[in-house]
């Protein structure tokens, strides 16, 4: 045994590989291999009751670019972009507020931000259902009861509902990275800017915003990518009418039994996300990412 240990100690790189082995195995079996299966399936023909027929075809990818699906792609993209923008607009001031509290209070605020998210996502989405529903939703009932509106607002079964649900769901993912960059921001930099004749808005535009950009970009990635692939939120709050690409993919596997087409859709969506990630790496430097 001790000989084995001595032998290992002399081989530092082997030790590193041994440390890596469990996670590498895990990733290979449960991530890379299935992904490869999906890739292969996307070039095959569908079986009648699910499954695949081993016959090579490009038909699935041709269908992805059918205007019907392209439209859904475009809508998903647009919903994900709006979700990202709204979480940023809501999340940045919140992150700034938390980061400027006295040290001891910050932990409490961050905890307060996280607590709602300990409840199951599905439960929270159904909670939104009871708030947003057109005729029986709490918001519309209250507003009509108060006499402020006479017709229910269209809050449910449309893009508005989906965006509300997604913004709510991903808000902490935007706030936390921004908070992390703002919290580390050296206060004396703000004083230096003020000392050099910059008023409040100028200090923000020239110092605070640029230095928090890595957090903003990271937060946007963390919100944009899951929003693009969302399927629980649109399934519940979209009321079965407003769908996103995630719903179409899940339908291909669960309802339409068209596994190859579902696989092709998945790969195209992954390509979109890959482009978004590349943009992220382009916008931020190595150094800025290391700060996160």
């Amino acid at each position: 045994m001790s000989k084995l240990i001595t032998w290992l100690r002399q081989r530092a790189s082997l030790q590193a590989w041994l440390l890596l082995l469990p996670s590498a195995l895990w990733l290979f079996i449960f991530f890379i291999a299935p992904l490869f299966i999906v890739l292969v399936y996307s070039f095959l023909e569908r079986g009648t009751y699910g499954g695949v027929v081993w016959h090579f075809t490009l038909e699935n990818y041709r269908r992805v670019f059918d205007p019907l699906y392209l439209k859904t792609f475009w809508r998903s993209f647009y919903i994900a972009v709006l979700t990202t923008v709204f979480t940023l607009v809501l999340g940045y001031p919140l992150a700034y507020y938390i980061a400027t509290r006295p040290q001891r209070q910050r932990g409490t605020w961050v905890l307060g931000l996280m607590i709602p998210f300990w409840t199951n996502f599905l439960v929270r989405t159904y909670a939104w259902l009871t708030l947003l529903r057109t005729h029986t939703g709490l918001i519309n009932l209250t507003l009509m009861h108060l006499g402020w509106i006479h017709k229910p607002l269209p809050l449910f079964g449309n893009d508005t509902a989906i965006i509300i649900g997604l913004v709510y769901g991903w808000l902490p993912d935007m706030v936390l990275p921004i908070y992390a960059t703002l919290e580390r921001l050296d206060r004396s930099l703000l004083e230096a800017a003020m000392d050099l004749y910059a008023s409040g808005p100028k200090v923000f535009a020239r110092v605070i915003w640029p230095l928090s950009l890595p957090g903003v970009v990271a937060g946007s990635m963390l919100v944009f990518i899951p929003s693009l692939g969302a399927f629980v939120t649109p399934a519940i709050l979209g009321g079965g009418k407003a769908l996103m690409i995630g719903n179409i993919i899940s339908n291909q596997f669960l309802a339409a039994h068209d596994w190859p087409f579902g696989s092709a859709l998945s790969f195209v969506m992954m390509a979109v996300m890959l482009v978004a990630t590349l943009v992220y790496f382009r916008v931020t430097s190595d150094e800025e990412r290391r700060q996160l």
Binding site: S188, E191, M194, D195
Partner: peptide, 20 residues
């Protein structure tokens, strides 16, 4: 008067140079 309206400038202890 706020700092940006005063005819003085400061050299800070930790320099406070803008890193970006």
């Amino acid at each position: 008067l706020p700092p940006y309206q005063r005819p003085v400038n400061t050299v800070f202890q930790n320099y406070a140079l803008f890193p970006h």
